[in-house]
Amino acid sequence: MDATTPLHVVCPHCGTTNRLAADALARAPDCGRCHRALFTGVPVALDEAGFRKTIGKSDLPVLVDFWAPWCGPCRAMAPQFEAAARELEPHVRLVKLNTEEAPSLSAAMNIRSIPTLALFAGGREIARQPGAMGAADIVRWARAHLPR
């Protein structure tokens, strides 16, 4: 992808779809509407509507952690997923989806166990990995499945 190719990036704060050049990712871009940072190095917690918009409108790959608050392995993986966000952003958006708050989406996505990681690109799921992972393994797995 050319450095000046426009990308669509959904703001994690207000949901606005921002258009920016690919080379702007390295310059800590802000949202055109709310003026907050588009990337914070922390996974974004999304509801069903936010998930659908982020997956459907973002030109960046999106790595989703399907989890639940009662799940011990999910809680253990949370700091690892956060560490992976610091390494993968701004080239991959990391998001968390609480399956207890979005049961119909979880069913539609065929989430059978948690935690489950799913990687999306171009609005489509391209890879899935069930089970808790460490930060280095999350980063390695995501990079291995990213479109070239």
Score class of each variant (00 low, 15 high):
1 M>Y: 05
3 A>P: 15
4 T>V: 10
8 H>W: 04
9 V>N: 02
10 V>H: 01
10 V>K: 02
14 C>N: 07
15 G>Y: 03
18 N>P: 02
18 N>H: 07
19 R>C: 09
19 R>H: 11
21 A>T: 05
21 A>G: 06
23 D>P: 03
25 L>T: 06
28 A>R: 15
31 C>F: 03
32 G>K: 06
32 G>C: 13
32 G>V: 12
34 C>M: 09
35 H>K: 14
39 F>I: 07
44 V>G: 02
44 V>I: 14
44 V>N: 01
45 A>V: 09
48 E>P: 10
52 R>D: 12
53 K>A: 14
55 I>V: 15
55 I>P: 00
57 K>Y: 06
58 S>F: 04
59 D>W: 08
60 L>G: 00
61 P>D: 04
61 P>A: 02
62 V>K: 00
62 V>Y: 00
65 D>R: 03
67 W>T: 08
75 R>L: 14
75 R>N: 10
76 A>Y: 05
77 M>S: 03
81 F>E: 03
85 A>E: 05
86 R>V: 09
89 E>P: 12
91 H>W: 15
91 H>T: 14
93 R>V: 12
94 L>M: 07
95 V>N: 00
96 K>F: 01
97 L>I: 13
97 L>P: 00
98 N>S: 09
98 N>K: 09
100 E>V: 05
101 E>K: 13
103 P>L: 12
104 S>F: 11
105 L>W: 06
108 A>R: 14
108 A>H: 07
109 M>Q: 15
111 I>V: 15
112 R>H: 13
113 S>D: 07
116 T>G: 07
117 L>C: 03
118 A>M: 14
118 A>G: 04
119 L>D: 01
120 F>S: 00
120 F>W: 04
127 A>K: 06
129 Q>V: 09
132 A>H: 01
133 M>V: 04
135 A>W: 10
135 A>R: 09
136 A>I: 01
139 V>W: 02
139 V>C: 03
140 R>N: 05
144 A>F: 04
145 H>Q: 15
147 P>H: 06
147 P>E: 09
147 P>R: 08
